[in-house]
Design a protein around this nucleic acid. Structure first.
Lengths: 241, 241
DNA sequence: CGTCGATTTGAAATCTATCAACGATGGTGG
DNA sequence: CCACCATCGTTGATAGATTTCAAATCGACG
């Protein structure tokens, strides 16, 4: 059940059989949720932690003027609200983009597992920092990259992240988003997203059609969009205390 | 020595005498650093944690094309690289904006203090999440707010953060930045920052002159720039596990 | 068949960047 | 004390990117 999560952790940490067993023995609730459903709202203080098992979701904030801004995409193996308990409540909302199955893990149980399994604790902190690192890169994207590069960069990031949980083919992957979703995530208007997609397609860099991304020339695309995978910290752990 | 840090923590947590004593007994190194000095570089793996004692600094990334993008402002009481050890190395650089004094705390010593003082551990995690929360708000700013609102929003945020460590007067504070710095932080050109400052001044919302911010009408400014202090999580801890 | 959501296209409006230049300031060295 | 230089703030004009508005097309689905 926790396969994507474990897969992600194993890429970077030496997870022992005991660690894995501890995770697998957690008493979780598995819930299917339909697409476009906000299952965590800003201000909530959930007593369960939510983990994506399948499907795509996003963190977002709804602004006063009705704009919805996507703060991060959540893919299988990602936690929605890992640290909510520390801040008291979440300051963003979470909603599904496609049909999803969400795993709910009781807060208290998870905490005690982490207490007795330091590697897991470390891994979970690492995931939280990864979120932050991605956030920083998005900030850079919106500020410094042209609309076209921004969209290209996003496709690169998603490829790497989906690879890490085994959800990509060679250089293509399913992406159940609309162009409007990409607009919400990049801060571009839907119309402009459309034009940028056409341009990227015309330049034989990426195609995004029928909810499927097909990267035609990965090398050229990463070069063009200034994508440097370092910020995803996906390589195995070499240093550290 | 650690006054700003303790002040910040106390606003939200019940810090006991023992906790405070533990912090104060840390063997720290105090270093004065001149303005505009990068003392942590992307890729570094410092064995000390850096805490701002006085002055202004920033996290930033230098891009290939020479652009410098500020990811966050660091004020007294803020850590520069609290979690660097978990990721192995920092993925951003840190530099002073004004003359600063920086406190260096040995990583290992800090860790053991946190292990024996759960409230502090909690507080430190909270600070790290706060960083992330501010990052999210910046992302929203650059994507959804006009240049003028963005600058106004920044002044609101800094007021609140400086208040939390006792570094503001009524509704004004010293801010040792140039207009170019504000540009690097907001992703606007220096020229445009200048015009926005003039406009904000003309509308009797804020003045920024001689390294000093004077908020003329806080209520109007927060309303105008869509500032909601919730994301700073500064109120005292009411909920939580 | 009609409808709804998603994608596509075109034209105009708006915002922000860029380029270039100027004034003010403060510090430095002669 | 003055000349010089560098940095910062200011102003104007122009160019480019992106948004907004409006409308057409397309496909899926009841």
């Amino acid at each position: 059940m926790l396969a994507p999560l474990i897969k992600k952790l194993e890429r970077r940490f030496a997870i022992s059989k005991a660690d894995r067993a501890a995770l697998e023995s957690l008493e979780v609730i598995v819930a299917p949720i339909r697409a476009r459903n906000s299952f965590i709202l800003e201000g909530d203080a959930p007593d369960h932690t939510h983990l994506i098992h399948s499907g795509f979701a996003c963190r977002y904030k709804a602004l006063a003027d009705g704009t919805r801004l996507i703060l991060s995409f959540l893919i299988p193996g990602d936690f929605c609200d890992l640290n909510a308990h520390l801040l008291g409540s979440v300051d963003y909302s979470v909603r599904t983009l496609s049909d999803c199955t969400i795993i709910q893990i009781p807060r208290g149980e998870l905490n005690s597992t982490l207490l007795s399994h330091p590697i897991l604790d470390r891994g979970f902190r690492w995931m939280s920092l990864l979120d932050e690192s991605i956030l920083r890169e998005w900030l850079i994207s919106t500020k410094c990259r042209s609309a076209e590069k921004q969209v290209g960069h996003l496709f690169c990031e998603l490829l790497m992240r989906l690879q890490a949980v085994g959800l990509s083919q060679e250089e293509s992957y399913d992406l159940p988003l609309t162009q409007a979703d990409i607009g919400d995530a990049t801060g571009l208007s839907t119309v402009h997203v459309n034009r940028m997609l056409q341009r990227l397609r015309g330049e034989k860099l990426v195609e995004f059609r029928d909810k499927h991304v097909n990267i035609l020339n990965l090398k050229a695309l990463t070069a063009f969009s200034g994508f440097n995978p370092r910020y995803l910290h996906l390589s195995s752990e070499l240093t550290g205390t």
